[in-house]
Design a protein around this nucleic acid. Sequence first.
DNA 1: ATCTCTGCAAATGTTTTGCATCAGC
DNA 2: GCTGATGCAAAACATTTGCAGAGAT
Lengths: 125, 125
Amino acid sequence: MPKLLRDTKQRNAIKRAFFEYRRPLGPKEVLTIASEEVPNLGIATVYRNIKALVEEGELVTIEIPGQPPRYSMPREKSPYLFYCQKSDRVFFLDEEQVNPSFGELPFPFRAKSHEVIFYGEYQEG
Amino acid sequence: MPKLLRDTKQRNAIKRAFFEYRRPLGPKEVLTIASEEVPNLGIATVYRNIKALVEEGELVTIEIPGQPPRYSMPREKSPYLFYCQKSDRVFFLDEEQVNPSFGELPFPFRAKSHEVIFYGEYQEG
DNA sequence: ATCTCTGCAAATGTTTTGCATCAGC
DNA sequence: GCTGATGCAAAACATTTGCAGAGAT
């Protein structure tokens, strides 16, 4: 039997954070955002819900090397990421924005997928 | 003034671990290996020496998203990595092997560097 | 003799877990 | 009323740091 997920204001506030921000968020970021809606929200609840939502397929995990994991709504997943070193935020890039091209890797490397991470500054304004 | 590194049996045991294993190792792995040579070796010493050796350029940090950091003797410096999902090993790729090209990122993204990670299978034989 | 390095333990920082209570179904 | 979910605190982990004594130069 499939596990039942209940509809709580905490879980809704957490889901809304991802829906509104549309970029990968870390647990603490989610806590800050969702706490505006649910004041006494605990960090453990954030972790538990993120984990459940990832298992449900409602969130995907976004990993930047050397950084703690972030999470995001799945339709925004892209192998092209931009990490702003100034604000410590992650943004998705579309393929058109990146215009990548690679040759085929030589033997004995057989690549099934790849991931590109740009490091720099997201210029506000 | 450049900082002086002393020649201790702990540091030598740690360096030897990397030299003998010739693959990226994590701190706990290093502790286990080097402890055979220096029984009372502490994990803090491993961390401190890895950090120092990285700063000296004797080790490089290898980061694969979603995995704890590993360290390795430096080879050709390259932002191109290949992760073998079958054997859990990491390989460096040369720029010629990858032949990458990107367009310039649109505003407001200003990239200073990038990193490409290929996932697949390293074919033995 | 100097001054770095080491081991230990304590301190961080992050994520997980136990448990009594709360609340969705 | 069940039973999953929550908040809090404690526990688990991984990494860093303070310190006094040991060791390299």
